[in-house]
Write a protein that binds this DNA or RNA. Structure first.
Lengths: 219, 219
DNA sequence: GTCTATAGACTGATAGAC
DNA sequence: GTCTATCAGTCTATAGAC
């Protein structure tokens, strides 16, 4: 087996196990067993468990961030500069929601790993999580351009709440299913994105009447 | 030291440490050191680590649930039967938010422990978490009585999102502070409750125009 | 009831053969 | 690069003295 194959097998196994069971429940031995590689290979390729986790987080975060920014850019170009807020919020929550509910298990694991990483306060990630703020500020700036008369504080809260709704929906689908006794469709990703964007926009505009028309709710 | 004193010292220390650092990072040795009791006392009083966690979770969940239901009942009595949805949602998210941001460290630890427990998938809690659904259904029913013509699915999503916003605000204040460079006030509990309730209600009513007047947004 | 001491199992990491 | 073998540290749980 080549070096890259081993490396990638470890990364893929770690990602899936952490996404499914959380960091606390998964040991290096679990990971090497799933990847069908030797225990020593982890330290050889990554140096330590913490460095494995950090590398995994950085690489997956980069993917999601780039998808978000790409969608944001596309929305702004389409609108000729200032994208409407619903399109901006859609670019923010769409990638992670589509990813985690994707039928492709690798794509789903990558997204759910990111959520897990941002929730469980695991030391190696906590130190590098600051970088996440940077790209969120770009979304805040885009929204600010779209709604120049709105208090920026409203925009920050809106981003905060949109991410909260997206993450909770990915992480705790079970509770919603049981609460609604199956009535809530938690599999229709696009409808969920519509819903979260719609709630966020409605919450955002509040008493401000100077905002452009919104994308209609698809309920 | 009496038996009860030891028991309570262990419970209080465990609650605080778990709330501050998560379950993965805290061992029984950390707990007994903070409680200034002997290691064997945990197993003597609780049987095992898992039973300690379960007992802690059950007792703290009971307190929050009872506060919520008490507020709900008060709101319904005040309104003569059907409480307005904003009052119902306020009864849902108010107690946990007031608790976790309370200046009283014990009260804050209790609320943050509950959030931590509902986030980190720790085995002993996962089994008993089902009970939480029961009291949420009472909130769904109250909202249904308040808005009888609304699709119940909307109500379930609304509860789901309101809790998502409350939990994320408690758990990840740091990101919001940094994103907004301190502009968002994350210490004014009542303003946060107003904000979450307001966003939830706006998201809930969507295109439905048959609902009663809402509590004005206090932005 | 409280303590010390320790069992028994697991963890991440590494040395050294191949 | 990959493996075996093993280290040193951690954990929960418990037996037994007091």
């Amino acid at each position: 087996m080549s070096s890259d194959q081993t490396r990638n097998a470890i990364l893929a196994a770690a990602e899936r196990l952490y996404a499914d069971h959380g960091f606390a429940e998964v040991s290096l031995r679990d990971i090497v067993a799933a990847a069908q590689v030797n225990l020593a290979a982890v330290n050889y390729h990554f140096g330590s468990k913490d460095e494995l986790i950090a590398e995994l987080f950085i690489s997956r975060a980069r993917i999601t961030t780039s998808e978000r920014l790409q969608e944001l850019k596309a929305a702004e170009q389409k609108a000729g500069g200032r994208a409407p807020v619903d399109a901006i919020l859609r670019a923010l929550v769409g990638p992670i929601l589509r990813g985690s509910l994707s039928p492709d298990p690798d794509r789903s694991a990558a997204a759910r790993f990111l959520i897990q990483a941002s929730i469980e306060a695991v030391a190696p990630i906590h130190k590098i999580k600051n970088r996440e703020i940077g790209h969120l500020k770009k979304f805040a700036a885009a929204m600010q351009r779209s709604l120049p008369e709105l208090d920026p504080v409203e925009i920050y809260w809106s981003i905060h709440f949109a991410l909260a709704m997206a993450h909770q929906t990915i992480r705790d689908r079970q509770r919603l299913i049981r609460l609604s006794e199956g009535a809530c469709d938690v599999d229709d990703v696009e409808a969920i994105i519509d819903r979260i964007v719609d709630v966020s926009v409605r919450g955002l505009i509040r008493s401000d009447a100077r905002v452009p028309a919104r994308r209609p709710a698809s309920v």
